[in-house]
Simulated scan of single mutants.
Amino acid sequence: MSRESMPSGPYKDAVSYVSWLKDDERFSHILVQISHSFSGHAFPRLKLRYKPSLVQLEGGISHLPLLDLSMRAKPLTPSQWRSKLEKVNKDYQGNVNLNTTCILLDVRNGYEWDVGHFHGAERPDVDCFRSTSYGQSESEDIDSDPLARIDKENTDILMYCTGGIRCDVYSAILRQRGFKNLYTLKGGISHYLWSEGPVDWVGNLFVFDARLSLPPSSYKAEVEPEEFIKLEVSESSSFAKCHVCSTQLSALRHRNCANLDCNLLFLCCAGCTSPLKGCCCLECTSAPRLRPVLIGQQRYKKWHHYRDIEMQNSRLLT
């Protein structure tokens, strides 16, 4: 079980479980966060399996000194993070420059940034954490790395992710590369939204379950589900746009491309879903392995499920 996800259930049962867990002194210090699910169980099936690590990077992470707390970024409480953000927003001009004394680093994937991020954070140019390469740029891609050419001794680097695990891992890499002033948001974005609300946060929070994204208010236990289904994002925002037609979305809806061999996770408006058969582009609509268009909050099943249905239908027709 990671600290970023737990089984779903009725609110009162979740609170009881947390209370029972913290009665054990071994887990009394664990930060447990609860968020609403407005479409039934966020985790309809309980699946347990062993994973050597919660996150993966190119080349593995076994060589990293992750148990050495001095090699990780310094954790900041949500209130301390909020104070640091004031400095970032004072320096922020839309682009990182050599005179910047504080950099806000989003250590997530690009599609997570697309639905919500802290003001002043640049969009990560990766679709998988294992490909993250901040601070490791070669000469040919130095312009795309916000940590390239900065003062490693004097620049404050504020790192954030959903729950904090990715920052713990990646900060060890940056520490080995000589970056001195590393800070991370304790408990991640979800903890910040619960503690401080959406101050300096723009949009919703991407989550890795059937809900896909949650508005900041979902982390307040007293809010009823129907109160936060609406999109919380300013119309003037430059993000949260349809991947196909680039129009501002009135409702956030991530979907995987219906082309199984593409499977791109992208934002799509309702008007572009049917014409492209649930695909991300026109080219994918002619793919040989095409899944059906999904309606509402449904998620794709395994390919063999749709293949078996097609085979049954073809037998009925013959």
Rank of each mutant, 00 (worst) to 15 (best):
Asp125Met: 08
Leu214Val: 08
Phe43Cys: 07
Arg175Thr: 15
Leu105Val: 04
Cys257Ser: 03
Cys272Ile: 07
Ile150His: 04
Glu235Gln: 09
Leu290Gly: 02
Pro215Gln: 03
Gln33Glu: 12
Leu249Tyr: 06
Cys284Ile: 04
Leu316Phe: 10
Ser286Asp: 12
Val55Lys: 04
Phe266Cys: 11
Cys257Thr: 05
Leu85Asp: 01
Ser250Ala: 12
Lys152Gly: 02
Tyr300Thr: 03
Ile103Arg: 06
Gly40Arg: 03
Ile189Met: 09
Asp156Leu: 03
Met311Thr: 11
Gly60Ala: 02
Gly164Ser: 01
Ser171Arg: 08
Tyr11Leu: 15
Leu205Pro: 00
Asp168Arg: 07
Arg299Thr: 15
Ser218Phe: 07
Leu64Gly: 01
Ser190Leu: 13
Asn89Pro: 02
Leu31Ile: 14
Gly163Gln: 00
Asp125Glu: 08
His119Tyr: 12
Asn181Phe: 05
His117Pro: 09
Asp23Pro: 01
Tyr17Thr: 15
Glu196Asn: 08
Leu252Gly: 01
Cys242Thr: 15
Leu57His: 07
Phe239Leu: 06
Ala240Met: 09
Gln176Tyr: 02
Gln248Ala: 11
Cys161Pro: 04
Ile295Phe: 15
Glu140Met: 13
Gly296Ala: 10
Gly9Asp: 04
Ser131Lys: 08
Ala172Met: 09
Phe38Asn: 13
Arg123His: 04
Thr318Ala: 05
Tyr50Met: 01
Val202Thr: 00
Ala240Gln: 05
Leu260His: 12
Ser37His: 04
Leu182Val: 00
Pro146Ile: 03
Leu104Pro: 01
Trp201Gln: 03
Leu174Ile: 00
Arg82Ala: 07
Ser236Glu: 12
Ser236Arg: 13
Trp81Gly: 01
Pro7Asn: 08
Tyr11Ser: 05
Cys245Arg: 07
Ala251Phe: 13
Ser195Phe: 05
Leu57Gln: 07
Pro10Leu: 01
Val207Trp: 00
Asn99Val: 11
Lys74Gln: 15
His243Asp: 10
Pro65Val: 03
Cys281Ala: 12
Phe118Arg: 05
Leu64Asp: 00
Gln297Ile: 09
Leu158Asn: 11
